[in-house]
C-alpha cells in the first residue's frame, strides 16, 4: 500500500490508546455496526480517537488493507488491532474489553461535577418542587446531549455531592460526565442550564445573527466563510465574509485548528453541511450562522437585500 498512508496509520495508532475507524463520528455514526461499537466504548472510556472512513475513500480502502480486515468498523487498542463489531461485542459481553481498556468493573469510579453558584441556586429551586425521596439526576446520551431531571434513586446509581447538593448519575454515564460543569445563565433570549462537558468531541455550534454582529463589532478574531455560489453572492453578501470557492477556502486551508470559523449560506442549511465536513478535518471551533444571510437581513441589517 501507499507508504505515506501506511505512515499515517502507524502514527495515528501509536499516538492514541484507542482508535476506532468507523463510518461517521461519535455523535452521528452512519452505520449500525459503527454505532454499536461507539456505544460500547462510550460506556467504558470518556475519550477516544475516531476516524471517519467515509470522509476519505483512500482511508476507507487503505485501512482494510492495513489491518488485513474486510469490514468497518475496526478497533485498535494500544497499538494492537482488536477486531470488528462482532469481536468487540463478544469481548464486551465477556468483560474482556473493559479489562483491556483498563477499566475493570471493580475499579473505583472517579466522578466529579462542578456546579456554579448560579446553577446551585437554580437547582435548589428545582429541588423545592421535588417529591420526598426525589433527587436531581444528570444524564448524558451517546451524542453528548445532556439532561437534568427529578426522580427517585435507582439501583446502582452513583451519588455525587456538589456543594450542598446531591446529584444522581447512572454508573454507565460516570466516565463520560467526569469533569462536567453545570452553570445557569440568563440573557435576552431566556434563562437555562448550560452544561459544559470536557469529554464531548467538538461539534458545529449554532450562532445567531445578533451574536455574530456582536463579534464583528468587538473585532473578534473570526473567519466568516460564505459557502454560496457566485450567482447568489452577487445578489446579496456580507462585506466581511470570504467565499469558500475563493479567498475563504484558501484562508481555511491555512487556518489553525483552534481558529473560530463561521459558515453561512442563504438559510443556514448548506453552511451547516459544509461546517460538518470541515469538522472532520479536526477543527475545534466551528459555527453555523443560523438562518443564514436571510436572518442577518431581518435581524441585524435590513440594507442587506433579501432574495
Amino acid at each position: 500500500m501507499d507508504s505515506a498512508l501506511k505512515d499515517h496509520f502507524d502514527k495515528l495508532i501509536a499516538s492514541h490508546d484507542v482508535v476506532l475507524f468507523m463510518k461517521g463520528n461519535r455523535q452521528f455514526p452512519q452505520c449500525g455496526f459503527s454505532s454499536k461499537v461507539v456505544k460500547m466504548l462510550n460506556s467504558i472510556v470518556p475519550k477516544y480517537e475516531t476516524v471517519n472512513v467515509l470522509a476519505d475513500g483512500s482511508v476507507r480502502e487503505g485501512i482494510k488493507e492495513y489491518s488485513n480486515w474486510p469490514t468497518i468498523p475496526q478497533l485498535y487498542v494500544k497499538g494492537q488491532f482488536v477486531g470488528g463489531c462482532d469481536i468487540v461485542t463478544e469481548m464486551f459481553e465477556a468483560g474482556e474489553l473493559q479489562a483491556m481498556l483498563g477499566a475493570p468493573a471493580s475499579a473505583p469510579i472517579t466522578l466529579e461535577l462542578k456546579v456554579t453558584p448560579a446553577a446551585a441556586d437554580a437547582l435548589a429551586r428545582f429541588m423545592s418542587e421535588a417529591d420526598p425521596g426525589e433527587l436531581i439526576r444528570v444524564e448524558v446520551d451517546d451524542a453528548f446531549e445532556h439532561a437534568l431531571s427529578l426522580g427517585p434513586r435507582e439501583p446502582g446509581d452513583l451519588e455525587v455531592t456538589a456543594g450542598s447538593l446531591k446529584l444522581l448519575v447512572k454508573p454507565q454515564h460516570a466516565a463520560r460526565l467526569n469533569g462536567t460543569s453545570i452553570d445557569y445563565v440568563s440573557n435576552a433570549s431566556g434563562a437555562g442550564f448550560r452544561i459544559d462537558n470536557p469529554n464531548a468531541p467538538a461539534k458545529v455550534m449554532a450562532l445567531s445573527a445578533t451574536e455574530l454582529q456582536k463579534w464583528i463589532a468587538e473585532g473578534r478574531d473570526v473567519l466568516v466563510i460564505d459557502v454560496r455560489p457566485e450567482a447568489e453572492r452577487l445578489v446579496s453578501s456580507l462585506p466581511f465574509a470570504l467565499p469558500l470557492e475563493g479567498a475563504g477556502g484558501e484562508a481555511l486551508a491555512s487556518a489553525s485548528k483552534d481558529k473560530a470559523i463561521v459558515f453561512h449560506c442563504h438559510h443556514g442549511i448548506r453552511s451547516r453541511r459544509a461546517a460538518e465536513q470541515v469538522l472532520e478535518r479536526g477543527f475545534k471551533k466551528l459555527f453555523n450562522l443560523e438562518g443564514g444571510i436571510d436572518a442577518w437581513s431581518r435581524t441585524v441589517d435590513p440594507k442587506v437585500p433579501t432574495y
Binding site: 480486515w69 474486510p70 488491532f81 482488536v82 477486531g83 470488528g84 462482532d86 469481536i87 463478544e90
Partner: peptide, 17 residues
Amino acid sequence: SRLEQQRAVLSAIAPLM
C-alpha cells in the same frame, strides 16, 4: 484468538466477497 478465528473464516470466503 478470536481475531485469528475470524480471519480464518474471512479468508475462506474472501473469493465470494
